[in-house]
Computed example of a mutant assay.
Amino acid sequence: MHDLIAAPFQDHHLILRPGSQRAVKIGAARYADLEHAVATGRHLPGWLADVALRAWGVDTADRTADTAVLIRARGPFEFSRATWEINLGCDFDCEHCYLGQKRFDSLSWDGKDHLLHVMRDAGVIWLQITGGEPLIDPAFPAAYRLAHELGMQVELLSNGSQLSKPRILDLLTTYPPTKMSLSVYGATAETYDAVTRRRGAFQRFAKGLQAAVEAGVNIDLSLIITNRSAHEADAMQAWADRLGLPRRQYATISPTIHGGAEPLPSQSPEYLTHRKPFTGCPAGRTFFHVDPHGRASICKVGREPSIDIPTEGLTGLARLGSIADSLMLRTGGCSGCKLSGTCRVCRPMAKLLQTAKAPPHTYCQNA
C-alpha cells in the first residue's frame, strides 16, 4: 500500500497518510514537482521525505516517488467528502434506530466496485462507510480495501460487535481507518441488551472494544442516550474515560428516514439539548451521501430527489447542488416563519419531524 496520498483540495494541495487524520498543505509548485517525480519514477523529493518524517515518522528517503505516493486527480466538482451506507442490515435491532425496517440488500460487488470508482473520480478524499452495520456485510473487506487503494481516507461507523474477530482486526490494522466511531448503548449488559434488543450484545461489544483498543485502532465513542440508558450516562462516560477514548454524547432521536415516528418515544427528555442555530451546511456542494443501492443524495436526511449512480454515473452528481437548493427552501409549516434566522433545524430534518408528527416543542421555537 502507498505510504502517502497527494490530493487537490479546493484551492490547495494536500499530503495525507493513510489512516491518519493529519494533513499537510503544500503549494502548487511542489505539487507539480511531486507529480513529475511520480510520472518519471524519480526518488522522492527531499522536501517530501522531510515532511513524511516530521509529520508521521515515516522514513521514505530511499523510496521512489511512484512507489511511495499515490497521486489523486482533481475531480470535476467540489466534492471532497461522502458517506456510504454499504448496507442497511444490522445484527442489532435498536428501538431508536432511524433506519426503520433494516433490509439486508444492496448492490452486487460489480456495482460496489463501480460506485467506489465514481466517488474517487468525483474527488472524494474522506469517505465514511456506515450501515446498518457495515462490518457484517460480506463485501465489506473487499470494499474497504478498494477504498484505501483508490486513495480515500476511510472512516467507519460501527456498533463494534465484530471487532473481536481476528480477520476484522487484521484488516483494520493492515489498512487503518482515519477514525472508527463506535456507538455505546449502555454500561451494563441489562441496559445494553434491552436497547439493542439482542441478548449478548453487550458482551460482544465490550469484547470487541477491548480488542480494538489493544490493537491500536483509532477509536472514538458515541454515547447514545435514550430513556432506557439515561440512568447509565455517567457510567458510559466513565468507561470511555478509563479507556482514554474521545467521547461524544447523543440524545436527540430522529424519525426514521421515511418519516416514521417509531424511534421518537425512546427519547430521554431530560437529556435533550438545544441545537445551535442552523446556518447552512455543505450538503450537495462539497459533500454527498450514497445509499446501499447507489442512489446519491445531498445527505442522510434529504434523500429525495436522488441521483442513480449505476445508471447516471459521475455526470449525474452535477445535479446535487440544485437539489440542495430546492430542499433547503422553507415550505409547508415553515414557510414565512419569522424565527427562521435562529431556527435550529435544517429544512430536510424539519420535514421528517413534521411527517412523523413529532412534538413541536422538541424542535420548534414557535411551539
Rank of each mutant, 00 (worst) to 15 (best):
F79N: 01
D62L: 14
E133F: 06
R242E: 12
A251D: 14
G321H: 01
E214N: 10
T191V: 08
K351A: 12
D59C: 02
T188F: 10
D105L: 09
H2M: 12
Q10A: 15
S326L: 13
S80Y: 11
Y363K: 12
A211D: 01
E133A: 11
V51F: 00
R42T: 15
I5R: 00
R167V: 03
S20M: 10
R204H: 05
P305Y: 09
R81K: 12
L107M: 04
Y31L: 07
E149I: 02
V154A: 11
L353G: 03
L243C: 10
R167F: 02
G100A: 06
S335G: 03
A235H: 12
D93K: 15
H148I: 03
P177W: 01
A356E: 06
Q153P: 08
L172C: 05
T40F: 14
A230N: 08
T279G: 13
S20T: 04
P292N: 05
Q365I: 07
F202L: 00
P45S: 04
S268R: 15
C90M: 11
M236N: 02
I26T: 04
G57C: 11
S297R: 00
R228G: 11
A23T: 09
E133Q: 09
R74P: 02
V58D: 01
L157T: 14
P348Q: 04
K102E: 15
T67Q: 06
W239N: 12
P177H: 02
L4C: 02
R54M: 06
I26F: 12
L352I: 07
I323Q: 03
P265N: 08
A61L: 13
A65I: 05
E270N: 11
H258M: 11
P8E: 03
L327V: 04
